[in-house]
Design a protein around this nucleic acid. Structure first.
Lengths: 415, 415
DNA sequence: GTACATTAGTAATAGTCTGTAACAAAATAC
DNA sequence: GTATTTTGTTACAGACTATTACTAATGTAC
């Protein structure tokens, strides 16, 4: 019953021409090669996509010439007949660079076209409180190093994506990110200027959505509808429906941290009362840490999530705070599932480390509050990647763009 | 420039062939004609879509031959040159039949291919408490009458859609609809059997989503991201993102009525506590009607929403209940907007009649609780159609399917 | 009233896709 | 060593759109 088009923006979808059909099929083949882990033969592609063998051959030629895929030696371990030539995503073609700002450090990540993480690096933030501009400049310095490193490995960085904890407008302007002290800051433009080179796309995106993308890549692809809870002090959700990230009207979706749990609850930095953040944010949980533990120094030299994890074993107050957090999370997630109907909840970021103490309470609330839970139980589990998912996802978006529409990246082979 | 992707289905999109490009362009042209209210010329279409004039001519020929569009006499009121031939959606081609079950009545609606409501009819429900099977049989009887009526007007009903208040699985099975006493009832199969004729598609869908479709059709098409609140005793939301209805993993999205407002609030028919329904459902508001009003008979012979509207003027208790409902609605809608980012809220169904007493409170909560409300205010207003939106939307889905992919409905003109 | 300008729509042809069918290549099976 | 089997390619046909040139139908200038 869907109304017109998708992903066009300006109301109507574009006309279809001959070139479009080729572009579409190129993307189709590439997605197929990416989906199958191992090498795929041309005939496998023909069978999987439904395209004719000659068509596949011609398209594959273009992808090979464009350096997006590579042939691997014939596979001899078959029964009879000519052995198929394996095709895999190229490991020396375009690559993506992801950047992330955390409470204590900056992170950079390089992912090659095959989707493997080739480089993952952390740098301490220069000052405890840094200006947004200085932070971007520090990130740009790390980025330039990473780009040099990538080139040394035969990779070409075709785009940079910065993950931020807060809503981002037009893929460039960060509206409200109290965790890092940003407010109405055009991070994209600043980063673009600091990086200089014009042959790279630069974009800024919400960390939770990017993390969802990374977790989706890491999973078996049966995961098609899920929500990925991500964050530490600032809480967000990346919602994936039918294999596609939900972006919303202006790209401000997934602000789970500011969903109301108690209409007259604790005040939040956003100005409202009773936001989930105030019950399930790391700050709220840390507030329950007993004073003697704080004095004993158990909290130093560790990330907040690890600290909480260590203390949970010996402090009943911390366990109680985690239970409260789990219940609050469950209530908000139940609202989300009632509204958008996903079948899996991934606890990611700091929460992947705390999943042991949270899942039970979350599951209980979802079971009670989600209308359709009795017919289709919702799975709640720790995300496989964890805190690094946002940077990795940021790098992945870049190559994902190329994978979706390879036609703009390859020069046609003239027969 | 990703192409079609229509009928995506199981994970991967289908290969693009020559025939697809034609199908795509046929749909494109048809959507374009539907979007412009008045007659459109071939050259207008060429300019609007970007396709070449001869291409447009050929596609238009096929649409004319298929009876989906019609030519209207040349328009003489132009400046110079050959006058353009106007093209409009056919008013005698395929049509859709919508059915709806309300608390007091059954409804049927015929919409022609141009999208105009040609027939809208109500029948009282036979008994106060009817079995689901009997209700379907009653609906089938009305439907058959409507089909005959349509044929007399030169219309061909190509599909029937039933709107129901509750989550629907696979477009046929109603999972939980306490407002009409249904639970795990395969309404689609029963209706298909009762109607008999095999040349019609029969489907069942959630009323809120269908209402959203109808309101979207009725609006200027600038409305692209909105939520449509619909219902009376059972509350649902149709969420439209970028012109497309959000369906969710299994089609169970938009269950706003069961979003938690107070974690330990009033018990709900679903088994949970503190659902929105318990605060903003019509039953909750009606509970505040003073006893003397009930005895005075003010509540009889009117729909509940009208009753409330009448009483609101003279009863402070009712106004207080409406204010409470508005606040609860605002809290839940704020959660929805934080999660999926829409820019407009339409109060539909019974709530369109009560908008005067609700909008202010809803707006206040959204302003306070939606993180991004300060940069992009959310509009809250009464939906133009109101309670009939669900039936009309049900009929519209049918013709929307044809409009989206006309190629299956027309026989090619062989040159 | 006629020639001209102007705009709408239509043929004819070329270009670019994919599909079908026949063919070449490279292995196993006997 | 020949037949069989499976993979991949070449040659040609079919489908669809773009370009170019043409016809149709009106208003306008004189």
């Amino acid at each position: 019953m869907t109304m017109p088009d998708r992903r066009t923006g300006s109301g109507f979808s574009t006309p279809a021409r001959q070139e479009n059909i080729r572009a579409h099929n190129l993307g189709l083949i590439l997605q197929r090669i990416a989906a199958d882990g191992g090498p795929v033969s041309r005939i496998d592609l023909a069978r999987a996509t439904g395209l004719a063998r000659p068509t596949i051959s011609r398209l594959v030629d273009d992808l090979l010439a464009g350096g997006l895929i590579a042939e691997v030696g014939p596979d001899r371990s078959r029964s009879a007949g000519r052995p198929p030539i394996g095709l895999t995503l190229s490991r020396t073609g375009p690559a993506g660079l992801g950047l992330d700002i955390r409470t204590g450090s900056l992170a950079a990540c390089i992912v090659d076209f095959a989707g493997t993480v080739r480089h993952l690096e952390f740098a301490p933030r220069t000052h405890p409180v840094t200006s947004p501009e200085q932070t971007i400049d520090d990130l740009a310095a790390i980025a330039k190093d990473a780009i040099r490193l990538a080139e040394a490995q035969g990779l070409t960085i075709v785009g940079v994506t910065l993950a931020t904890p807060g809503p981002v407008q037009d893929r460039t302007r960060v509206r409200f990110a109290p965790a890092i002290g940003w407010r109405d800051f055009d991070a994209g433009s600043r980063l673009r200027a600091a990086l200089g080179s014009a042959d790279m796309s630069v974009s800024v995106d919400n960390e939770a959505g990017l993390a969802a993308l990374a977790e989706w890549h890491a999973s078996d692809k049966e995961l098609r509808n899920f929500v990925c809870l991500f964050g530490d002090f600032e809480l967000g959700a990346g919602i994936v429906l039918d294999g596609e990230l939900l972006r919303g009207a202006r790209g401000w979706s997934g602000e789970l941290g500011h969903v109301t749990v108690e209409p007259d609850g604790v005040a939040c930095s956003c100005g409202a009362k009773g936001c989930l953040q105030g019950y399930a944010g790391l700050a709220a949980i840390l507030a329950a840490v007993p004073d003697e533990e704080k004095r004993s120094g158990a909290t130093s030299h560790r990330t907040p999530a690890v600290t909480i994890g260590v203390l949970a074993d010996r402090s009943p107050e911390v366990r109680a705070a985690l239970a409260r957090a789990g219940t609050a999370l469950g209530i908000s997630l139940a609202a989300l599932i009632n509204l958008v109907d996903v079948d899996t909840v991934l606890l990611d970021g700091s929460y992947s480390l705390l999943a042991t103490w949270l899942t039970e309470e979350i599951q209980a609330e979802i079971r009670d509050r989600v209308l359709t839970a009795r017919w289709a139980p919702v799975e709640v589990r720790a995300a496989p990647i964890g805190p690094d998912a946002a940077v990795i996802g940021a790098a992945l978006t870049v190559i994902e763009d190329v994978r979706r529409d390879p036609s703009t990246w390859i020069t046609r082979t003239v027969s």
